[in-house]
């Protein structure tokens, strides 16, 4: 399934990833699930202070609070994004192991501080792999 995202929101996502470099950043992709459209990128705090250069974690309560705010505004949770500092935008085994089904996982590669390749992934039902989904950038 294609994921659609306005250019301005994708730019915000990239800016967040560059600001956070060399650490991983993470956030929510909110919009409408039926057509897999993102209308809002919401920044989260990476709680993995011990290994933030190659890991991210957002605890259940922090995530629930952030998601509830978006839901209260009439948005749905379409997926999540995170950065891979100095690493390709390919999902890792660790990403797959920790992924939820039926969600889009956007990964942005940040090379020497600059946002580079951005890919979106979706977990297979049997958790054996994640499949790439096209990203459609909506011009403002």
């Amino acid at each position: 399934m294609t994921i659609s995202i306005p250019r301005a929101e994708l730019s915000r996502l990239h800016a967040h990833a560059e600001e956070g470099f060399p650490h991983e950043v993470v956030g929510i992709l909110a919009g409408t699930r039926a057509d897999n459209t993102v209308t809002r990128v919401a920044v989260l705090v990476n709680e993995r202070a011990d290994s933030a250069h190659n890991r991210y974690t957002v605890s259940g309560l922090a995530l629930a609070r952030a998601e509830q705010k978006l839901v209260d505004e009439g948005l749905e949770i379409v997926g999540y994004y995170h950065s891979h500092p100095d690493h390709p935008a390919q999902y890792s085994d660790f990403d797959r192991d920790h992924a939820w089904p039926n969600m889009s996982y956007v990964i942005v590669s940040v090379l020497t501080g600059r946002a580079s390749t951005t890919l979106s992934w979706r977990l297979r039902d049997d958790r054996s792999a994640m499949d790439a989904e096209p990203i459609s950038i909506v011009e403002d």
């Binding site: 991210y56 974690t57 259940g60 995530l63 629930a64 999902y91 939820w100």
Partner: peptide, 9 residues
């Protein structure tokens, strides 16, 4: 059931 999220390279 409350999801948390994690990942990384």
């Amino acid at each position: 059931i409350v999801p948390s999220i994690a990942g990384g390279v």
